[in-house]
């Protein structure tokens, strides 16, 4: 996987409306800084690919953490309210205050963290049980979902603007976006280096984890906070890209097993690779029309995931 990531990166940089050879890619980025190729690569493709990679990492790691901490294979960043919070905040800005569109990422980020906090405190009762958290998440999400639908009904003429935000896309993402998310991503990923063993132990059950000296509530809070931070920073930049956080950790679990010490890095790499590849396909397939990466991911990812599931059954 570590080999695949640079390959995906380079291939993605080559492809586009105007394709550039692998050697020219290096030349254009590092040596010949005046060429047209440099303009295309440096200002358009490179930041977009980097944003895609970081977003993929964030969402995949966030999903891996949440599936472990909630002991629920269906857990994904949207289950703790991240997506619905970001979505609602994004909708309000895009539909009600269309003049403030540039504030969408910041608003979505705050919305995501706020709704996660709401879900967490609603689930609290002498500690947070995973099931209560999942249920509170579903309830808050459907409430915010109703809010989004209401907005769409009241402002039908502005619905088009929110569609791309809903599907999730990397179109026109550039350096400002990258600079916005990498500090959060780096912080959250660095914290997560210390967490996999604790998450492994937590998955044995609360009582067994306490017996082994893991502070259950504190660890759970930290894990959820890290997952929320990762997902919020990703969602704020690309919109409601749902699929990566659910499927990539599962794919990785099939490939490398359930040990979070290996699963975390595997999810990071795999998430980046998949988002970059899918975005590349989306750009090239119907050129000059761009297909949002969220759609490509569901189209390719879902069948691939079903294939993995089937393979696993045969070998077991």
């Amino acid at each position: 996987m570590m080999v695949l990531l640079p390959i995906a990166l380079i291939v993605s940089l080559q492809c586009g409306s105007c394709s550039i050879g692998p050697i020219d890619v290096f030349k254009a980025i590092f040596i010949d800084k005046t060429s047209v190729n440099h303009q295309i690569l440096w200002n358009v493709r490179l930041p977009r690919v980097l944003v895609g990679g970081v977003v993929g990492m964030c969402l995949a790691l966030s999903g891996a953490i949440l599936q472990g901490v909630l002991r629920n294979p269906l857990a994904a960043p949207n289950i703790i309210g991240v997506s619905s919070g970001a979505g609602f905040a994004g909708f309000v800005i895009l539909i009600v205050f269309p003049d403030l569109t540039r504030l969408v990422p910041a608003g979505a980020f705050i919305g995501a963290l706020a709704s996660t906090l709401a879900v967490y405190s609603l689930a609290w009762s002498r500690g947070v049980q995973p099931l209560r958290l999942v249920l509170a998440g579903v309830a808050v999400s459907s409430l915010l979902g109703a809010g989004m639908s209401t907005l769409m009904i009241f402002y039908p003429e502005r619905v088009h603007g929110v569609l791309t935000f809903m599907v999730g896309g990397l179109s026109a993402r550039s350096w400002p976006h990258f600079n916005m998310i990498w500090p959060y991503a780096l912080a959250a990923i660095s914290i997560s280096i210390f967490l996999p063993t604790r998450l492994n132990i937590l998955s044995l059950g609360d009582d067994a984890a306490t017996g082994l000296g893991v502070h259950v509530e504190r660890t759970r809070l930290i894990l959820i906070a890290v997952a929320a931070l990762l997902a919020a920073s990703a969602v704020s930049v690309v919109g409601l890209l749902g699929f990566v956080g659910l499927i990539v950790p599962h794919m990785c679990r099939k490939l490398v097993g359930p040990d979070n010490r290996i699963l975390f890095p595997a999810s990071l790499f795999c998430g980046a690779i998949i988002v970059i590849i899918c975005d590349t396909i989306g750009r090239v397939l119907l050129d000059p029309i761009e297909i949002p990466v969220g759609i490509i991911m569901a189209l390719i990812g879902a069948p691939f995931f079903l294939f993995l599931l089937k393979e696993r059954k045969k070998s077991a």
Partner: peptide, 15 residues
Amino acid sequence: AKTLALLPQMRFIPD
């Protein structure tokens, strides 16, 4: 946990 170990009844077995 360095001096007290548990064998609880409620526990999960990760896949």
